[in-house]
Simulated scan of single mutants.
Amino acid sequence: MTIKKEDLRIVFMGTPEFAVESLKTLVENDYNVVGVVTAADKPAGRGQKIKTSPVKDYAVAQGIKLLQPEKLKAVSFLTELADLKAHLQVIVAFRMLPEVVWKMPALGTFNLHGSLLPQYRGAAPINWAVINGEKETGVTTFFLQHEIDTGHIIEQRKMPIGPNDTAGIVHDKMMVLGAQLVLETVNKICKGKVETKAQDQFVGLEEVLKPAPKIFKEDCKINWHEPIEQVHNKIRGLSPYPTAYTEIINPKGKKTGLKIFETQILHNSEKPFGTIYSDNKSSVFIAGNGGTLALHLLQLAGKKRMTAKEFLNGFKNLNDYKLDL
């Protein structure tokens, strides 16, 4: 089935900043986005001010019809969605959809996922790819079906992961690459040139599939007994959010949380394993398993994020502390 670009009616569903780039790319390439579905407004922060999603902010600025359902199976929402008469739905970083929603448009519903499916199915593909030390990741568009992240693949694009790239760096690069892939996918659908493949065709005979489940606070605590490369990968894979952390202990035995955002591996280990120390000027170090980590960006509990030099300006007695192992 082919359809003229100007006649194609698209509903876009997404919530965070990652999704805005894809929506913006469709709008700026003159596609007819007739509606946007995003998360409901909610209170956030200490003052509990109402927070709106980045996708909502962009949609409102562009004057696009906006839907913010609490429940995706609510009759009122389904009626409003059907009234938009969309031919195609595009999903980028949104909730799991019920079948009644993703089956609604004649041309289907496709999703942009932040990995080379079927690898890293799940909620946190960027984080886990970096945590696992992958040198490459990518983006995938696929049509939705019943099981999450399992639909037939439309297109994929690869991208490298640098040895010191954080999840935040990969996120920002992937956001742009993903938007380009969304545009290419919509172009193909519009021209009736889509050929999909089942995900099992992308798996080698002895390839093991790696999951990307949601990350919880207990997953973020650093295990210093792991090889130094794994610790470094975990820190960058959780940076800037939800952030890897450890605890340091003062001479009186009191523990204080320490978030770590950016590190560098130094393979010399001059200090005993588990020692946290500094040069009292501009560098903080932790002697780990197989090497030393230089901590470049960190945050003490109750304080703001700062460089190692800024940290040491207000923390003169670090060498008296121990690492909680």
Results as ranks from 00 to 15, higher is better:
228 I>W: 00
293 L>K: 01
321 Y>T: 03
225 H>K: 11
192 G>L: 02
186 V>M: 09
124 A>N: 09
257 G>F: 01
28 E>C: 08
101 V>L: 06
275 T>I: 04
230 Q>Y: 05
247 E>P: 00
170 V>T: 03
227 P>M: 07
114 G>C: 10
95 R>V: 07
67 L>I: 08
13 M>D: 05
186 V>D: 10
312 L>F: 03
133 G>K: 01
176 V>W: 04
40 A>C: 08
83 D>T: 12
272 P>Y: 02
156 Q>F: 08
7 D>M: 15
258 L>M: 10
220 C>S: 04
277 Y>W: 15
218 E>L: 06
75 V>Q: 14
36 V>Y: 03
321 Y>C: 04
25 T>A: 11
61 A>Y: 03
207 E>A: 11
145 Q>P: 10
256 T>Y: 11
7 D>Q: 15
100 V>G: 10
120 Y>I: 04
169 I>C: 04
219 D>N: 12
245 Y>L: 00
157 R>F: 02
220 C>F: 00
176 V>N: 10
308 A>N: 07
108 G>C: 09
39 A>H: 10
243 T>P: 00
220 C>W: 01
40 A>Q: 11
141 T>W: 02
62 Q>V: 05
287 A>R: 01
302 G>C: 08
176 V>S: 09
281 K>H: 14
122 G>Y: 02
59 A>G: 09
28 E>D: 14
189 I>F: 06
261 F>M: 02
263 T>P: 14
100 V>W: 06
281 K>P: 13
150 T>E: 07
290 G>H: 03
281 K>Q: 14
97 L>I: 10
106 A>K: 15
203 V>L: 09
215 I>G: 00
265 I>F: 03
121 R>I: 05
138 G>Q: 05
176 V>I: 11
288 G>I: 00
108 G>N: 10
203 V>A: 08
244 A>P: 00
123 A>N: 07
203 V>I: 13
81 L>I: 05
124 A>Q: 01
55 V>R: 01
168 G>M: 04
157 R>L: 06
7 D>A: 15
127 N>G: 05
302 G>W: 03
